[in-house]
């Protein structure tokens, strides 16, 4: 699986305005809505489901990365948004560090494999220090999209 298979280009944001964990989730789900990835009627339900998943344990997995996610019956395919926050946000991460890179995923409940393949792709790419550093430094949506495309084309070392 590649970023292009699940990240909606219209749901990619540099410099998000959110200042806390809940606001990040709301802003990123709003991005998905704006990009046509989810239905308007489902916005609150998806935000609630992602927040509930966070209560089970933060999806801040360390190294300044978080992957908030949920399964949701309203989507018929995996959809994802990306956000970068240069200031960093407290996301209750496992390593207690701030989070700078967010990948938010909403997947159909009956397709757990797609979710796992997306996590595999995200984490494999983010293990590359160069990719991770450039992504954190991205100032525009175009920069982020270009980096994701380069990663999809295996232009970063593994």
């Amino acid at each position: 699986m590649k970023f292009a298979d699940f990240i909606l280009p219209g749901a990619v944001k540099a410099e998000i305005t959110a200042a806390n964990k809940q606001a990040v989730i709301r802003e990123m789900v709003q991005s998905l809505l704006d990009a046509g990835g989810i239905e308007k009627d489902e916005y609150e339900s998806i935000v609630k489901a992602i927040s509930k998943r966070e209560e089970l344990g933060s999806t801040g997995i360390g190294r300044g990365i978080a992957v908030p996610h949920t399964k949701h019956p309203s989507v018929n395919r995996l959809v994802g948004s990306v956000a970068v926050c240069s200031e960093g946000i407290d996301f209750d991460s496992l390593d207690c560090e701030k989070v700078y890179l967010f990948f938010l995923l909403v997947s159909p409940p009956e397709r757990p494999g797609d979710h796992l393949r997306a996590l595999e792709h995200i984490t494999r790419q983010l293990k590359d220090d160069t990719f991770c550093r450039f992504l954190k430094q991205s100032k525009t949506k175009e920069d982020i999209l270009a980096l994701l495309e380069e990663a999809d084309n295996n232009m970063f070392g593994k």
Binding site: I61, G62, G113, R117, T123, K127
Partner: peptide, 12 residues
């Protein structure tokens, strides 16, 4: 010890 590392295995 690394969640990032473990997830990158893609173990189904």
């Amino acid at each position: 010890r690394s969640v990032l590392d473990i997830l990158s295995l893609g173990a189904f």
